[in-house]
Write a protein that binds this DNA or RNA. Structure first.
Lengths: 190, 190
DNA sequence: CGCGACGTTGATTTGCCTCAACGATTGTGG
DNA sequence: CCACAATCGTTGAGGCAAATCAACGTCGCG
């Protein structure tokens, strides 16, 4: 069945009865998206949250100077959304683009909000997920401040080899906050 | 009463009945802490969450090279903890230090976990708080990548004038991820 | 008063960027 | 299926933002 991966992911994060799990999952609907297509573009208002079944996505912004800045990648078993736009219902600064043919499960914002009210276990689930994400962002900020570009690259490459192998060096560079020319030079010196 | 600020802060983040609010707040106990004293030091396991009633704190880490790196400041009406150590019960990489004589309300980890189970509204409260914090961290990462040191300094200075006025330039520099010498030069050129 | 942390300033170095050129890969239309 | 375009990766020359190191004045504090 389609939603097994989602169900496992949810159960990993918070205890939930099978009945509630069904109630939650039935609001997710599948969507296929082709390579290079966008799930969200800068200026849109984010009205969904997504869970990746297959493929890989890049969540990035383009600043005033025209530079691309990648917030994160989302491969199989990852969640994605623009939480800023989703929460505040303001125009998004982010683009969510498929890096290869991909499949996601989406839940509409209104359905998600209804689930919060219907099931305390859903509150817990997203509370736990958000707190884990917070930890990851704090650690990343520390790495950005304490490590050199070369060290950050090696951290990324060894920590996420599955993602690293799917994406271009240019995209890695925009995640690390450096130019792709400089990344090329880093890779050369070992 | 002592806990008014805490109660207002909670009500700002999530709807909660007065009865439940009392149940939640009664687990918070006050603590006074003198300038330069530590609420948590690197290596400790974080067993509390705190809410600042008065004063100001700095949450920072010291890396292998001996550089101080400030994750954030917490003034009146802010929450503080090492969420990484709190969640995983692993030794903390962070120091939480009072920058002036301060007062906090603390809740023990075990009490907080019990409150999650007792009240769905507490799950919602911390779910919402965590998601707001997530948005703030994402925005900060984007600023770090897209703005120059000078722009980041001015953003901090104008966005948090109350904090900015209380702390030393050295501390601001460690928050911005630059040296205090360079911050001095930035400030000079306007 | 005197010590230690802070802030400033200058000289020098370095990590990373910019621009430009060119081969290698990948995508696309005829 | 090939030809051409577009994007990507590499390399080099030069430049700039920010770090490092060092000296010195200042302030708060014991």
């Amino acid at each position: 069945m389609d939603k097994d991966l989602l169900k496992q992911n949810i159960k990993k994060n918070a205890p939930i009865s099978n009945a509630e799990l069904e109630q939650v999952c039935k609001h997710f609907y599948p969507k296929s998206i082709t390579k290079r297509a966008f799930l969200l573009t800068q200026g849109d208002i984010c009205k969904f949250e997504g869970f990746v079944l297959e493929g890989c996505f890049r969540i990035f912004t383009i600043d005033k100077k025209g530079n691309e800045n990648t917030l994160y990648f989302a491969a199989k078993d990852w969640w994605l959304m623009d939480i800023d736009s989703f929460m505040n219902q303001t125009p998004s600064n982010l683009n969510i683009q498929a890096l290869e043919d991909s499949k996601v499960l989406l839940i509409k914002r209104s359905d998600k909000l209804a689930l919060y009210d219907a099931f305390p276990s859903v509150e817990k689930l997203f509370r736990v997920m958000s707190q884990k994400a917070l930890v990851a962002w704090q650690r990343r900020l520390i790495r950005n401040h304490c490590l050199t570009a070369k060290e950050r690259y090696h951290y990324f490459d060894t920590t996420y080899p599955d993602i690293s192998s799917k994406i271009t060096d240019k995209q890695i560079a925009s995640y690390l906050g450096i130019t792709h020319e400089f990344l090329s030079k880093i890779k050369k010196q070992s």
